[in-house]
Amino acid sequence: MTARLLLVFTDTASLVDAARTLRTEGVDGMDAHTPWRVADLEPVLEPPAHGVRRTMLIAGLAAAAGVFLLQTWSAVWFYPLNVGGRPLFSWPAFGFATFETGILGAAAGGFVAMIRACGLPRLHDPFFDTAETEGASDDRFFLSLPREGAPDRLRLSRLDGLARIVEVGR
């Protein structure tokens, strides 16, 4: 992993402003580490699309279709039985398993997609090499820039609300 500079802030407003400022100054490849989701950051940092929802839709429809076809095939062709004189193709009854499986498929597909899109599991990331980043899950807000081509320390230190700068990676 390349070296990155982490700018530590103590509140979200400063973090968002700093990100916006650096962005307008043309800094690319920025990321942020926050204990909670800061919605305002997303239009600023413009992370690439992740397609999790699309995956969920596809997985859900595929699972639903699969289960519906399984039911239809087994009830009409593979092992048809006279069950209460009901029609073999009992599509209203088939709908229940279809719906539930569809939702499960979407959930499971999305879960996998989410984990993979986040690049997880990644238990040993240089981000964890220092104890200084522990606040990222508590009450500190980190703006992450690639060290290569980052503005100099002086410029950075003039950002509002900046508490500290940490280096990670090599």
Binding site: L81, N82, V83, G84, G85, R86, A93
Partner: peptide, 20 residues
């Protein structure tokens, strides 16, 4: 031995079925 037996559609494992 109902032709539209209520016991048949509710059996989850098709242990109650109608023959020819």
């Amino acid at each position: 031995h109902c032709e539209k037996a209520p016991c048949e559609p509710v059996c989850p494992v098709a242990a109650s079925v109608h023959d020819e």
